[in-house]
Design a protein around this nucleic acid. Structure first.
Lengths: 127, 127
DNA sequence: CTGTATCCGTGTGGATACTG
DNA sequence: CAGTATCCACACGGATACAG
């Protein structure tokens, strides 16, 4: 069975088309390494199930790396692989386009807000 | 009710996050103006319903323009607005990333194929 | 040719509980 | 802390028919 794409972007969407994948990738692009619970704080809307499945798929497609520390309590760190880092320019543009779009919406009087307190939610790299 | 984004890319996804939207935008980016039936040939997998709804949403968000010709038989042309053209770099990168990814999959022996016969399906700008 | 309306199946994704 | 396993609802999206 031959899989046929009619336009190349369809292949891209199969990899990053998931509901939360660009969000996950953008956070990784910002922070480098992120632990599971940190993701849950960075992405309040996501459920445990979705988070895991999206991460697994990204891992399967070779975009992210999953590093397990054998310790108690458990610790798992996710990061972009070198292949995943190839998405960096796209991720950055998606983010900056969003920033400008939010400003546009605000100028039009819509009640939208961008939270900037990444640091409050924050990443602690406690080893 | 205040809409809150936790990261800017979320706003981008609300605009181009639809299942077919990046595909539609990429085609517009390639061809300039596209008629409804041409979309159906360019995107064989899409249903009439989906095509219309995705186009409407893109129009609502100001990315594409819908030009209706009052004639028989009816004719409607879609194109990127100037705001939509601001997505051009992103669309191009999404496409070229996909091309490279398809090559990678092929190198790994997966049965994937990119159709290049845009011209067979082709756009006729019959006035 | 372009678009709307309806019906309806499916799979995405949420809530919850549980394991290592 | 990290992850799996169910259950299940609802919205997404397909098929079909019809209208301008």
């Amino acid at each position: 069975m031959q899989k046929v794409y009619n336009i190349a972007v369809e292949a891209t969407l199969e990899v990053i088309g998931g509901k939360w994948k660009p969000v996950i990738l953008c956070h990784l692009n910002h922070h480098g390494k992120i632990r599971t619970n940190e993701f849950r704080r960075l992405i309040p809307g996501i459920s445990q199930k979705m988070l895991t499945s999206q991460l697994r798929e990204l891992e399967q497609d070779g975009l992210i790396d999953r590093k397990v520390f054998n310790q108690v309590p458990p610790k798992v760190e996710y990061s972009l692989t070198s292949y995943g880092q190839g998405m960096e320019p796209i991720l950055s543009m998606l983010c900056s386009w969003g920033e400008k779009h939010i400003e546009l919406l605000q100028d039009k009087g819509e009640a939208v807000l961008l939270r900037k307190n990444d640091e409050d939610i924050s990443i602690q790299h406690t080893s």
